[in-house]
Amino acid sequence: MTPAVEGYYNLPMLKRPLWGWEIALYFFSEGISSGTFILATLADVCGSGRYAALISQAHAVAFVSLLPCPPLLIADLGRPERFHHMLRTFKISSPMSVGAWALLGFSAPVTLLALTRFRWFRWIPAKAVGLAGMPFALFMLGYPGVLLSTTSIPVWSQSRWLGALLTASSMACGASALAIATALHPAGKAPAREAIHRIEGLVNVAEAAVLAGYVYTAGPAAHPLTKGRQSKLFLFGAVVAGLALPALITATRKKPGRSSTILSGALSLAGALALKWSIVHAGRESADDAAGTRAVTRATPTNRGWRQPEAARS
């Protein structure tokens, strides 16, 4: 038997990513935490005191959603008891190394701000702590996509838009979580509701745009998401439930009511989870796709690779 001219028995060229539900949930949870932290700080700095209730809720949400992050990351390791080895060095070339330090740095302001709701900790300067935590929060918002893109797995690494997509999704998570929180809060003030509602709408539009950009620029490398095993979750979860339905609800309602705000926020959060879940899990199918890997590592005029001399192939 002669195998197909291309490839080696169509066996995968790459190894399957070993990341699963822990990492998908981590990206979701840390997205809510960093998103709400950023929004809380902005409300504090730009709001001239109008959003006190919202800020206090946001601090609580940021803290609670950060709590499962370290255990999830540790559970994902092959050797969980060695989690602290992440902090024995700092490597700028490894987004995971920088991310581990950023998570450590981010947890300090989140914890401090969560404490300000207790009387004994009122002395903590919330605005200053919030501003100091902003660089960490922005890093936490933006790095998951960078971590996945800086690999050899085609579905993650082919498009330069993945980072933007996950960043926008995390910001949307923050806005949706706060929209739900303000709707549930009895003292939820009108200016806070309006501002959050506006932010939610804008971020969802931005997310839809970068999602389209990602699918377009990834080309066939996005097939595990658009046609593969994750496609149902990606299309119906991330696109329909996460983006289309909330937009529909917002468009058909003149004034955002309490129940519609909660519904669209919950749909948006579910969509973000579906998006992150499907992207993390699509890596496996992408690694298994031998033809897809061959296609993205084919020699080009600017990257000639290690090709056989032309003479031999005539």
Partner: peptide, 19 residues
């Protein structure tokens, strides 16, 4: 790309809060 998106959305949100 990631940080440009993060900063862009942050600025947008800041504008919404100060409006």
């Amino acid at each position: 790309v990631s940080f440009a998106t993060a900063v862009g959305l942050t600025v947008l949100s800041a504008l919404c809060f100060s409006r």
